[in-house]
Structures are given as structure tokens and as C-alpha cells.
Amino acid sequence: MKRGIGKEKSLSRFFWMLGGLVIIGMFIPLVVVFMISFNPGNELIFPPQGLSLRWYFNIFRHPSLLSSFQFSVILGIIATAASLFIGLSGALVLTRRKFRGAETIAGLLMSPLVVPQVVIGIGFLSLFSMMRIYHSIPCLLALHIVLTLPYTLRVLIANLSRCPVSMEEAAMVLGAGKYRAFLETTLPIIKPGIIASAIFAFVTSFDNFTASQFLIWDRATLPIEIYAYITKENDPTVAAVSSLLILMTVGLVILMERWVGLETVTG
């Protein structure tokens, strides 16, 4: 009787209808991208007028798309590794050493999240041009480390604060050195956190457009090339690139579900 038999279920019905429509509305554009990427003609018409892989082959006729993809992957990997290293050492100190100002530093390290991307971009542009540095690689790397650090730091602080330091102490009592104790007790426990924050950091770096576009003197990242292509040429090549990237994302999300669970994203 506790469900209230006979009582109207209009709320659930309303939520299911509206929620279902929203989910479908979010899903359809991605399906449309897939279908248009197989369109033989060069108009962006839905439904597609046939089936062809022409635009997928066309990607290879644009060296700028290929080289920027390669550059974005490398940049993302290096920025992620650096951000993990800085985040892990920072998170260790911030969770295990009690000192004045620890909270302030942790808060400030999160601040890039509330500063608009355009402002960060202009800021890096101003700073590096005042220092007369006009090279994309070091500037983008510095930018991406600053942008990804809040994510790695947040996840790792949450993980480390649930992980008691007594295990490490026990290992040391048993004769392990300081580093071995860390590597064999704490590290395995926070491994899911490291994987999750690495994925967050990589995606953040790989997708960043708005701040990065201010620093492209001699190298461009993939999002910048895609944006330029959409605003200049706009044939279904971008649909093909997008389809491949969406497939990559789906793969990444499935791996994430297997390794660490999607709760790390949804909270």
C-alpha cells in the first residue's frame, strides 16, 4: 500500500516524457553527424543522399588536420603526465601536512575553473608576449598544465584523504623504505583516482579551444583546425572527423566504465 495505489502518477509520467525528450534531443545531433559523414555530396543535407566513404578519405588530403591531431595527442599526453606529477605531489602535501595556508593554496589551485577561458587565453598571450616568447609548444604546454591541474588535484585530494597514512607507516615498520612503502601501499589504493584524473586531464587538454586559440603562432591543435575548417570550408569532412572522435570518446567511456566506474564523472 505504501506506493499509494490508485494515486495519480502524473509526476513520473511528466518526468519520463520530458526527460526522455531531452535525452533523445541530446542524442540525435550525434547520430546526424554520423549519417552526414557518409553523404556522397558536399552539402550538409539530412537525410544523406547515399552512402560513401569519400569524406573519410578526404581527411587524409588535409595534412593540417592530421598533423594537428598528432600534435594534440602528444600535447595532451605530456600535459597529463606533468599535471599528474604536480597534482600527486601537491595532493600528498595538502592532505598529509597540516600547515597554515594549505586550504588557501588548494583553493587558489582550483581557481582556473572559475576564470573565463577567454580571460586565461588573453592572460597567457599577454604574459608570453611581454616576455617575448612566441612559440606555441612551450606556451600551450604551460597553459594546458595550468588548466588540467584543478582536475587532477581535486580527484587525487579526494582519493588521498580517504587513504590512511598508517598503512605506509606499517610498511615502514616492516622494513620498507619511504618510497617503497608509498609505491606498495598507497599507490595501489589511489590507482582508480589516478586513472580517472588522467582521463579528465587528457580530455580537458585535447578538447581545449577557447584559451588555446590565443597561443597558436607556429602550431595549431586539432580543435583549432576543426573550428577553422567549419568556418571556412564546411564540407562533410568535419562530420567524418567528428564521427571518428565520437567513436574514440565512446571507447574511452567504455574503458572508463570498466576500470573506474562512471561514478567518478557523475558524482
Binding site: 546526424v32 553527424v33 580530455v203 579551444f209 580543435p223 576543426i226 572522435l245 570518446t249 572508463m256 562512471l262
Partner: peptide, 27 residues
């Protein structure tokens, strides 16, 4: 799964996808 894929797909691709839905020749 649907939402996390959305979340991790770049804004450019999602905005581009919406262009294909909302445009004059769109869905």
C-alpha cells in the same frame, strides 16, 4: 553512458552537430 559520452565530446563537435540539426538544410 549517453550523458558521459556527451560530456567528454568536445564542445566544437557538439556545436557542429547542432548546426547540422538547426541549419536551413538541417534535420
Amino acid at each position: 553512458l549517453v550523458l558521459v559520452v556527451q560530456f567528454f565530446t568536445s564542445y566544437i563537435i557538439r556545436a557542429y552537430a547542432l548546426m547540422l540539426v538547426l541549419g536551413n538544410n538541417g534535420l
